[in-house]
Simulated assay, not measured.
Amino acid sequence: MTAEIDVEIADGIATITLTAEKTRNALNPESSRRLARACDEIDANAEVGAVIVRGGGGTFCSGAERDVLARAGEDPADPERFAELGAVYDAFVRVGSMSVPTIAAVQGAAVGAGVNLLLATDLRIVATNARIIAGFTRIGLHPGGGHFALLGRLVGREAAAAIGLFGAEVSGIRAAELGLAWEAVDAAEVDGRARELAATAAKDPELARRVVGSLRRELDPPGVSWAAALELERGSQMWSLRRRDVRG
Rank of each mutant, 00 (worst) to 15 (best):
A64I: 12
R66H: 14
R66T: 15
V68G: 09
V68K: 10
V68F: 03
L69D: 13
A70P: 11
A72M: 11
G73A: 10
G73P: 07
E74C: 09
E74L: 10
D75L: 04
D75M: 03
P76T: 09
P76L: 13
A77L: 14
P79N: 02
P79S: 04
E80K: 15
E80C: 10
F82L: 13
F82Q: 13
F82M: 14
A83F: 06
E84G: 01
E84K: 05
L85Y: 13
L85C: 09
G86L: 07
V88I: 07
Y89S: 15
D90E: 14
A91T: 00
A91E: 00
A91R: 00
F92P: 01
V93P: 02
V93T: 10
V93W: 06
R94M: 05
V95T: 02
V95K: 05
G96Q: 01
G96S: 02
G96Y: 01
G96I: 02
S97Y: 08
M98A: 07
S99R: 13
S99E: 12
V100M: 03
V100E: 04
V100N: 05
V100T: 14
V100A: 05
P101Y: 01
P101F: 01
P101R: 00
P101K: 01
I103W: 03
I103K: 03
A104M: 04
A105P: 05
A105Q: 04
A105S: 11
V106F: 03
Q107G: 08
Q107V: 11
Q107K: 10
G108K: 08
G108N: 09
G108Q: 08
A109T: 13
A109G: 09
A110Y: 02
A110R: 01
A110E: 01
V111E: 10
V111S: 09
G112H: 08
A113I: 08
A113G: 06
G114T: 00
G114C: 00
V115I: 13
